[in-house]
């Protein structure tokens, strides 16, 4: 199922400068795998060697941090919006 994924500035070199890209899949994990096919190299930026989300990457599904849902197993539906956002200092 197609969803929009918002790409943060540090990853845009991999997406040919696009800030929003399309991907499809039933879960966040599927979406990451589908992005990797389209934009090789993207997965290793977001996930570590064990395939876990890197410590300083936050992934949001429609405004909700996926760590509050089921992590990478969080189900995704048509028209959802996913954002990948680096951690930011406080204030």
């Amino acid at each position: 199922m197609p969803v929009n994924v918002r790409i943060p500035t540090p990853l845009r070199k991999l997406t040919k400068d696009k800030d929003i890209v399309q991907a499809s899949g039933a879960t966040i994990q599927d979406i990451i795998d589908s992005l990797e096919k389209e934009y090789p190299g993207l997965k290793e930026r977001i996930c570590d060697e064990r395939g876990e989300l890197r410590r300083f990457v936050n992934v949001y599904l429609n405004d909700e941090d996926i760590r509050f849902a089921q992590g990478k197993g969080t189900p995704v539906k048509d028209g959802d919006e996913i954002s990948v956002i680096p951690a930011i200092a406080g204030g």
Partner: peptide
């Protein structure tokens, strides 16, 4: 710049 392009580290 604030994030490592490679690993998202600060």
């Amino acid at each position: 710049l604030h994030v490592c392009e490679f690993c998202f580290g600060p």
